Simulated assay, not measured.
Amino acid sequence: MTEVSMTVNGRAITGQVEDRMLLVQFLRDQLGLTGTHVGCDTSQCGACVIHVDGHAVKSCTLLAVQASGSEILTIEGLANGQELHPVQAAFRQHHGLQCGFCTPGMIMTAVDMIARHDGKLDEATVREELDGNICRCTGYHNIVKAILSAAETMGGTPERIAAE
């Protein structure tokens, strides 16, 4: 067993993990943060996307010990206890979900995407960058629409995006 320490959704966390435990397992099984989903265990579906040190990462590709010392943000911490984050609100407004299984990963990917592109996105870019996130229900039309709407709402500046 190895001790890990990290900040998860603004809280300092310390725990004991087996060296081979994936970060997604640590988040779900030890911390009870079940919003991060496990869809494939092979890094293909994107249901497990979280932010590690400000960047979107598939948490099934990272060991918990590798994340020690990192700042982790999951879907549960995105709104920070407040009203919905603008991307969450856009998904709701534009019906960017159906069964909801892929939604947390899609939203976390979208937040990162908007920040990296300073909110300046077009449909082709959004579709290309969603390539690693699988949705079996929606056909992506409303997901893309929601992300474009959120990017516009958030004003496109990295400072404003980070503050949201």
Rank of each mutant, 00 (worst) to 15 (best):
G32M: 09
F91H: 10
G77H: 04
G32E: 15
N9A: 01
H117L: 14
R136N: 02
P86W: 01
L62N: 04
V8W: 12
A163G: 00
V17N: 05
H95N: 07
N80A: 15
A64E: 00
H94M: 02
L62F: 12
C135N: 08
L97C: 06
L62P: 06
V144D: 08
V111I: 12
A146G: 03
S59I: 03
E71K: 10
A151T: 00
G46D: 13
F101M: 02
F26T: 03
N9C: 06
R116H: 10
T74S: 10
R136S: 08
E123V: 00
T109R: 14
I114A: 11
I134E: 08
L27R: 07
N80K: 12
R136Y: 15
R160Y: 00
G35Q: 13
L33V: 06
I50V: 08
E71C: 03
Q98H: 11
A56E: 09
G39N: 00
T34G: 08
K58F: 03
A90G: 01
I114F: 04
A90I: 03
L23Y: 07
C60I: 03
C102T: 03
S43P: 09
H51I: 08
I75S: 06
A150S: 11
T157H: 05
T34H: 11
S70N: 04
T42R: 12
H94L: 01
L63S: 09
R136I: 07
R160P: 00
Q93A: 13
C99A: 01
V17A: 03
T36C: 10
L84G: 09
T103Q: 05
E76L: 05
S149N: 11
K58P: 00
G105H: 03
E159Q: 15
A115M: 08
A79I: 00
S43Y: 11
G77I: 06
G100N: 01
A150C: 13
Q16F: 14
Q93S: 09
Q93I: 02
T157E: 15
C137P: 04
V87P: 10
N133Q: 02
T7Q: 14
D53N: 13
T36E: 11
T36P: 14
T125G: 03
A47K: 13
A162D: 11
I114G: 13
L78N: 05
T153W: 11
G81V: 09
S149E: 08
L62D: 13
G81F: 10
